[in-house]
Design a protein around this nucleic acid. Structure first.
Lengths: 188, 188
DNA sequence: GAAACTGTACCGTCTGGTCGGTTCATATAC
DNA sequence: GTATATGAACCGACCAGACGGTACAGTTTC
């Protein structure tokens, strides 16, 4: 994880602005002020606003990918266990980082959905890999969707789940990610 | 479902604008043009922009609640089967309506997260009810989170799932919503 | 003719983006 | 070792356009 300090501190500032004022109020001036420089300074580092928002999405996707890769490595780089790695990754991030992820995606979604392309491509790859899982594509999808649901809760800041709840849910998801369900639960 | 034709057609137009130009480009003028009247006309029906976005959220939450209520009734108004009703409701909506729901929430999220309060209150109630389910709170939560995940996919327009996939997933979720998992999957 | 509705003109503000500086550290020349 | 030059980082004034909102006049409906 290499940090270009100037660019990264601007992106950090942008996320902070999302958190404090909402995704629709991410202006160049607001970001500049939060980052401790002027609008001109921000535009020196990013060609335009879209480039900044795009970088925000990009950075977050890469970060998450690296966490997944790390967890996958810890599980022996077994393609059948990618889903487990995914579950581990999400829960290892914690609410804070999950919120950061939301703050990175929301401005892009608000101003120009095209900027979410890196995220879309990530999801395509991810769902593509799910067919390799021990538990089959549909059970995998359910687990994966539940993780996304957790993310949505964080994004809209409406999660009514306690940490204890989340720990229990993690356990259940880990088992659902590694052990096929009895036939009475599966389609066909 | 009572429709105040003028107000509702403006709200429809607003959702269309979200779909076509993105949540950040929902301006009074754009909505007016799409609805076939002028900005003044829109502002006659809604005190200001926030009121319009708020009405958008409100309408969607009420719509979804009524669908859930309908499905619950069809299942005999059994508190233990509320979760099943919820699953049925989500899948009965289809991609189109799910997308509409996203289009109703996104502008509020972008301009003023406070406007999402009706949605938050809905989720609080919903998760409160989950403890009554036959399948216990954690399994319920997993099912519910998966539904939210589906919604998120639609919201970010990144769902790589085919209709066939979704049908299979629905089946699995319905079973997970009505039959407790074997002990080997549950915490404790 | 009153109430409901719609259009038009306009104002003040905000925003993205441009552009011509300024600072300052480092490199090069002599 | 001093003078000159270079380039990266950044500032701040400014502009054109978009936006939310107001005021008010006109139209339609009953």
């Amino acid at each position: 994880m290499v940090r270009d300090s100037a660019r990264d501190s601007i992106l950090d500032a942008a996320q902070a602005v999302v958190l404090e004022r909402g995704a629709g109020h991410v202006t160049l001036e607001a970001v500049a002020e939060r980052a401790g420089l002027s609008k001109g300074g921000v535009l020196y580092h990013f060609q335009n606003k879209d480039a900044m928002l795009s970088a925000l999405v990009d950075r977050m996707v890469r970060m998450f990918q690296s966490v997944v890769a790390e967890k996958r490595k810890a599980l022996g780089d077994d393609p059948e266990r990618t889903l487990e790695a995914h579950v581990e990754a999400v829960f290892s991030m914690g609410d804070q980082t999950m919120n950061d992820a939301a703050c990175a995606m929301l401005p892009a979604l608000a101003t120009n959905p095209v900027l979410l392309e890196p995220l879309r491509s990530f999801y395509r790859d991810h769902y593509g890999e799910l067919s390799n899982s021990t538990v089959g594509p549909y059970q995998s999808a359910v687990v994966s969707l539940a993780l996304d649901g957790l993310w949505l809760m964080e994004m809209l800041q409406i999660s009514p789940l306690t940490e204890d709840d989340e720990a229990k849910i993690k356990l259940m998801l880990l088992r659902l990610a590694s052990k096929p369900l009895p036939k009475s639960f599966t389609p066909n």
